[in-house]
Amino acid sequence: MCILFVVVGAILGGILGQLLSGVEALAGLMPYLVTTYPVFDTSPITVNLYVIRLTIGLAFAPNLMSILGIVAALLLFRRY
Score class of each variant (00 low, 15 high):
residue 56 I to N: 00
residue 57 G to Y: 06
residue 77 F to H: 11
residue 43 S to P: 02
residue 63 N to V: 01
residue 72 A to I: 07
residue 29 L to N: 08
residue 61 A to G: 05
residue 21 S to I: 11
residue 11 I to T: 14
residue 53 R to K: 09
residue 53 R to W: 00
residue 27 A to L: 09
residue 45 I to V: 15
residue 5 F to Y: 12
residue 60 F to Y: 07
residue 15 I to R: 08
residue 65 M to C: 13
residue 61 A to Y: 00
residue 64 L to N: 02
residue 39 V to Q: 08
residue 5 F to M: 13
residue 78 R to I: 12
residue 71 V to Y: 06
residue 23 V to C: 13
residue 52 I to P: 00
residue 40 F to E: 11
residue 68 L to R: 03
residue 79 R to L: 03
residue 29 L to S: 12
residue 80 Y to P: 00
residue 12 L to Q: 03
residue 39 V to D: 02
residue 41 D to N: 12
residue 58 L to G: 13
residue 42 T to Y: 11
residue 24 E to F: 13
residue 34 V to G: 09
residue 51 V to M: 10
residue 71 V to T: 08
residue 25 A to I: 13
residue 11 I to Y: 10
residue 43 S to F: 01
residue 42 T to K: 10
residue 56 I to S: 10
residue 25 A to S: 11
residue 36 T to C: 11
residue 17 G to E: 02
residue 74 L to Y: 01
residue 78 R to Y: 11
residue 2 C to I: 14
residue 44 P to N: 04
residue 73 A to M: 04
residue 45 I to P: 06
residue 77 F to I: 06
residue 41 D to E: 08
residue 36 T to P: 07
residue 5 F to K: 07
residue 51 V to N: 15
residue 37 Y to A: 14
residue 54 L to K: 01
residue 52 I to G: 05
residue 29 L to K: 09
residue 73 A to L: 06
residue 62 P to Y: 07
residue 33 L to V: 00
residue 4 L to A: 13
residue 58 L to I: 15
residue 40 F to M: 09
residue 59 A to C: 06
residue 12 L to N: 03
residue 20 L to H: 07
residue 4 L to Y: 07
residue 67 I to D: 03
residue 21 S to C: 14
residue 60 F to W: 07
residue 38 P to R: 09
residue 77 F to E: 04
residue 28 G to R: 05
residue 13 G to K: 04
residue 58 L to A: 15
residue 15 I to A: 09
residue 25 A to G: 13
residue 59 A to I: 10
residue 38 P to I: 09
residue 15 I to M: 11
residue 59 A to P: 02
residue 61 A to I: 02
residue 80 Y to C: 05
residue 22 G to N: 08
residue 21 S to D: 14
residue 37 Y to L: 15
residue 10 A to V: 01
